[in-house]
Amino acid sequence: MGALEVRGVNKRFGGLQALNDVNLTVEEGRIHAIIGPNGAGKSTLLNCFVGRLTPDSGTVMFHGKSLLGRQPHQINQAGVSRVFQTPEIFADLTVLENVMIPALAHRDGIFEFNAFKPMRHETDIHKRAHDVLEDLGMADKTDMVAASMSRGDKRRLEMAMGLVQEPKLLLLDEPTAGMSRADTNNTIEVLRHIGDSRGITMIIIEHDMHVVFSLADRISVLAQGTVIVEDAPENIKGNVKVQEAYLGGAH
């Protein structure tokens, strides 16, 4: 049994069948990529995992427990962190604070009335946040206000916010979009390093095939709301169905 088991998930928006009987098994400790043309339903699927959307039918089991019908903060506390496609950061706060908040959430749970201990005495939280920012090459930007950063840096900050929680499952929605080639390669390095050293299970949605083939242990191809192929990376490249889905050969 995999870490994440998705069975028969359907989601309909009005007349559009966004997800059509999606089945997916993500093995523990693996990096699983979901690729597919625009509008295939990749982000919709991810939204079903984190509680932003509820599927019309089907099940999503994480380590044997259902994620459906739970609040986003409960899903996160169960060990599922998400890195958003458009940076969802705390724009008014500093980079360091942005990373310390998820670190606190990981340590203290959904609510903790910790109103008298000064933040600067939370040395372990500071250290963790610094370490993650260091890993992502942002150690020199800790005191910057998050809103003033470049888009690429915001993406890296997003990733730091996910990683600092040491999740069991990390969901990455196009983590390298808007990054320079050098930053992209650096991000690939970081993700691979984390995947190897901590054994975090990852689901990665990506358009950049360079990223996908550098990282993924397994790839699912989504087209028109359905998984058309699920296989190892080396078998995906030459697959006829995949080429049809991308190039529209079916029509």
Partner: peptide
Amino acid sequence: LKAVKSNNQRLSYTGIS
């Protein structure tokens, strides 16, 4: 509390109610 003001939505995806 500052995070609530800055991005309430994001906070819940960070595991905070």
